[in-house]
């Protein structure tokens, strides 16, 4: 039977909830938090860290820790938003063939929705764990 699941994809935090018996239940993440920071970190060892853990290592690995990427979704590299992010963000924002803003981490170029997708995958997994158990 289908379940109703709601996801809040925020600029700084994300949250996932399930409708259960007419009331909304927030799904806790692996670390036990009710919200998950919208942060993705790529370590030197090739690990991909998501959420609270990515945020904890942001200071040590600033150029490979991507946050607030929602702001770049659907923005052109030349747009005011894109340029402001390029100046203030510690990670690298690059142009693409169609002019959309992209993020380059460890030599690989990611589209903003791709990075948001990494966070969404984590939320999906949390919801699956919550419902399966």
């Amino acid at each position: 039977m289908g379940k109703i699941i709601g996801i809040d994809l925020g600029t700084t935090n994300c949250c996932v909830a399930v409708l259960e018996g007419g009331t909304v239940q927030i799904v806790p993440n692996k670390e036990g938090g009710r919200t998950t920071p919208s942060v993705v970190g790529f370590t030197d060892k090739g690990e991909r860290l998501v959420g609270q853990i990515a945020k904890r290592q942001a200071v040590t690995n600033a150029s490979n820790t991507v946050y607030a990427v929602k702001r770049l979704i659907g923005r052109k590299f030349d747009s005011a938003e894109g340029q402001r992010m390029r100046e203030t963000a510690p990670f690298e924002i690059v142009d693409s063939q169609n002019g959309d803003a992209r993020v380059r981490v460890q030599g690989r170029v990611y589209s903003p929705p791709e990075l948001s997708g990494i966070v969404l995958q984590r939320l999906k997994a949390a919801a699956e764990d919550f419902l399966a158990a």
Partner: peptide, 8 residues
């Protein structure tokens, strides 16, 4: 440093 238990 291990971000699973340490916060930088």
């Amino acid at each position: 440093f291990d971000p699973h238990v340490h916060e930088a």
